[in-house]
Design a protein around this nucleic acid. Structure first.
Length: 544
RNA sequence: GCCCCCGUAGCUCAGUGGAUAGAGCAUCGGCCUCCGAAGCCGUGUGCGCAGGUUCGACUCCUGCCGGGGGCACCA
């Protein structure tokens, strides 16, 4: 049980005894000043209005009603306008480290959402070219959100939605065909609007190697498209695997047509009076569902627009029984989802189970200039190239350390040149340092013992202990708010607390009982760093 | 014109309506006969502007200014 839970359970009976408390959330802050206690709550300030009394008086009656255990809490005081500040007993905090050592790799996880199933859809790039640095943010963030959800008990399916039909893919096939013909020595014009990337020629070369010149009459949508799709998809999966990302499901949009989902949906909209025909196209009456404009769902050519399969796709997510449906999009997709959600709502689905997470774009800076990226124009930096330059750990850490609502600058030159100064090394160094301490102290015949953890009362020890005990709260908050950067921020603070502990609290040369307790604390810290980095998909090396 | 995101230290960014707004990098200055100096300690007159909401606003609301993205019978 985290310290916050302890305080919550302590204060609720007191609140009920002296206010009209009806399960409002109770906030426990960690004050910036240590003189304001380990935790602080503003509950008296919030409830004073309802109770028609002044906050300090209410705080006093709450404190008077607390069933205090003096072995756990040293002091509870009222401060300022009516804050209630809690001071834990240092010896109790020291002994709490035992739970971390016992839980090991489970520490930080919980079973709050056990029995619930979640679908996290991310990447979902169509197989028209290699993943770019821009896809990196989506990929890494999505995978980490999935890991966080698993850590709080969800059964998570990672899913990749793709479309291997339509105009984009026809152009891809024809681009490959033209490169093939060029490789055979024919002079053909290669349109500017076609895929310009060098990978197209590589695919064409494999066709030359395998089939020679026998494909000159082959249609673009035959072998050319198939081969391009296969090679590109293999490439995408290989890139993702380098980042430790593996999807359980690859959902092909085409299966929605094959299984009649599209047709059924169209008929449903028609019979419900939610669609109509105009100018030879079928429109969805989104204006009646609370959105601004009606939208075309079937073009006058008879081809559906992306909205129709997107709706059908989300219907399958509900049909597959997920309790939580997470969609991770770049900001260019933000105009699409309100239409999809409105349509799903009209179909009677509980759309509050859907969480749409939109990340802002990554701005790539190369040679001091902003690079505008386009797969078609091939002026991108691939995700593979980024991993080549800075490695998996730095890539994953970097994309996770910023809030997704912020635009992100990615200075490639800086990332390459100063990778030694990347914050991820600060954490890994702390971990490697602890591993080294364990090696050296073992050689000196010292073992970690949990008998005397109450001896850990110095400021540096207490600061580190409090950080460590906070980890389960951070994991839960990060998971439920879908914010991976809370983990990276926390780990920075944890590593800082450790490095200070290391500097001021020596183990070797200290009285044996205290030395054993300190070694236990170092071990607990190692456990949390490792667990935290593991959530992020970053390695925790024993040596660097 | 409409919609979304952003504006916090020289730079990159944190900051669930709480008490004296933080970190990393950069600058300058200290600390290794002692468990890893990839570390520690010190060093800074910063919340775009103007109103409003309230006990309290970087945080919520309105307007303005500035930057990014999106507004197709493309996906």
């Amino acid at each position: 049980m985290s310290l916050r839970h302890y305080l919550h359970d302590l204060i609720v009976p007191a609140l009920k005894s002296c206010t009209a408390y009806d399960n409002d959330p109770i906030q426990f802050d960690i004050p910036q000043q240590i003189t304001h206690g380990d935790f602080s709550t503003n509950i008296a300030l919030l409830l004073a209005k309802k109770a028609k009394t002044n906050p300090r008086a209410l705080a006093q009656s709450i404190v008077d009603a607390l069933a205090l255990d003096t072995a756990v809490l040293q002091k509870v005081e009222i401060a300022g306008p009516g804050f209630i500040n809690f001071f834990f007993k240092p010896e109790f905090l020291g002994e709490s480290i035992l739970a971390v050592l016992q839980d090991g790799s489970f520490f930080g996880k919980s079973e709050k959402h056990k029995g619930e199933r979640a679908n996290v859809e991310f990447v979902s790039a169509n197989p028209t070219g290699p993943l770019t640095v821009g896809h990196g943010r989506n990929s890494v963030f999505g995978d980490t959100v999935a890991s966080l959800l698993e850590a709080v008990g969800y059964d998570v399916d990672r899913e990749y939605y793709f479309n291997n039909a339509g105009r984009q893919m026809r152009v891809l096939g024809d681009s490959t065909r033209l490169r093939y013909l060029q490789l055979l020595g024919q002079t053909v014009e290669f349109p500017e609007t076609y895929y310009q990337g060098g990978y197209i020629s590589e695919i064409a070369q494999t066709l030359v190697d395998e089939f020679g010149s026998t494909l000159t009459e082959e249609p673009a949508e035959g072998k050319f498209k198939d081969q391009a799709e296969k090679q590109i998809f293999d490439d995408i999966k290989r890139t993702l695997k380098r980042l430790g990302i593996e999807h359980k499901n690859f959902f092909n949009e085409n299966s929605l047509y094959e299984e009649g989902k599209i047709k059924g949906l169209l008929e449903h909209f028609k019979t419900e009076g939610l669609s109509y025909e105009k100018d030879g196209a079928v429109w969805l009456k989104l204006s009646e569902l609370g959105n601004d404009h009606d939208r075309v769902i079937v073009k006058s050519t008879g081809e559906p627009t992306y909205r129709l399969p997107d709706i059908a796709y989300h219907v399958t997510k509900f049909e597959r029984g997920y309790d939580l449906i997470v969609d991770i999009f770049g900001s260019d997709h933000k105009d699409a989802y309100p239409d999809v959600i409105a349509a799903l709502k009209s179909l009677g689905y509980p759309v509050d189970k859907i969480q749409v997470l939109i990340h802002q774009f990554v701005t790539i800076i190369m040679n001091g200039e902003v690079v505008k990226m386009s797969t078609r124009k091939a002026n991108y930096v691939t995700l593979d190239e980024l991993v080549d330059e800075v490695g998996t750990d730095v890539t994953r850490y970097f994309f996770n350390m910023r809030s997704i609502s912020s635009h992100m600058n990615f200075d490639l030159d800086l990332a390459k040149k100063q990778s030694d100064e990347n914050p991820v090394f600060y954490l890994q160094y702390a971990h490697a340092r602890i591993c080294s301490i364990i090696r050296v102290t073992q050689e000196a015949g010292l073992q970690a013992e949990s008998e005397d953890l109450h001896l850990l009362v110095s400021p540096e020890e207490q600061a580190l202990i409090k950080k460590i005990l906070l980890f389960p709260d951070i994991v839960l908050q990060s998971a439920e708010s879908f914010e991976t950067h809370k983990i990276t921020g926390y780990l920075q603070e944890l590593a800082e607390a450790f490095h200070k502990f290391y500097t001021f609290c020596r183990i070797l040369g200290t009285e044996q009982k205290l030395a054993q307790a300190r070694l236990s604390l170092a071990l607990a810290c190692k456990t949390v760093i490792r667990n935290g980095l593991s959530l992020l998909g970053v390695s925790a090396p024993d040596k660097m």
